[in-house]
Nucleic acid binder design. Structure first.
Length: 191
DNA sequence: GTATGGATCTTCT
DNA sequence: GAAGATCCATACA
């Protein structure tokens, strides 16, 4: 089992290589970002609101919210209840249900299916109604990776934020073709 | 190949 | 009324 109550940066590393299942589709996590209420980029930084109460709730639940009015983004709530923290799942390597993903995404290339936080929710069919569901028993499930240690990875700046950009809380599996872009400055793109 | 702007909605000012 | 943890089509080099 994954211990979602761990410190959020540790959990972000723990989720690299884990598998996300939803319906007939699944994918291997190759990119994550950590968010914590102590830093300004986190939604929970503003405190407890109707939007952020899931982040402050018990660990191991899904926080799904709408981004830019268009996309659903999937997070795993971390740290003990009362702390607002979550790991954003930013990219997956498609494993099962690839035909369904291709149909939902209207794209054929595997690299175009889950290489971004809005893309993977579309590919897996994850919706806002699944906000605040249990990751152990709900529609979205996350299975731990094989092996104890995280795969080789690169830490860098988080993407698409303007606050707390100095924190290197983004983790990419080294060498994966399925991570999102752009790459953070100063990090060579693997191929 | 890079650059730009539109879509569209929840939250907070 | 503005901003935002994004993606994609289009324009141009």
């Amino acid at each position: 089992m994954i211990d979602f109550s761990r410190p959020v940066v540790e959990l972000a590393l723990d989720l690299l290589g884990a598998t996300v299942h939803h319906g007939v589709t699944s994918g291997r996590v190759v990119e994550t970002e950590a968010y914590h209420d102590s830093e300004a980029a986190c939604h929970a930084h503003v405190g407890l609101t109707p939007r952020t109460h899931v982040l402050f709730g018990p660990p191991g639940r899904a926080y799904v919210y709408r981004s830019y009015g268009v996309h659903a983004l999937l997070n795993a709530v971390a740290e003990p209840e009362g702390v607002g923290a979550a790991v954003l799942i930013r990219a997956l390597e498609p494993l099962e249900g690839i035909g369904a993903m291709q149909a939902r995404r209207r794209r054929d290339r595997l690299e175009d299916l889950c290489s971004g936080p809005g893309k993977l929710t579309q590919a897996l069919g994850i919706e806002l109604s699944e906000n605040d569901t249990e990751l152990a028993s709900g529609p979205i499930r996350i299975a731990p990776r094989e092996g104890r240690d995280p795969p080789p990875h690169i830490a860098g700046r988080r993407v698409g934020i303007t606050k707390a950009v100095e924190l290197h809380w983004r983790f990419c599996e080294r060498g994966s073709r399925f991570v999102s872009k752009p790459w953070p400055p100063g990090v060579a793109r693997p191929r």
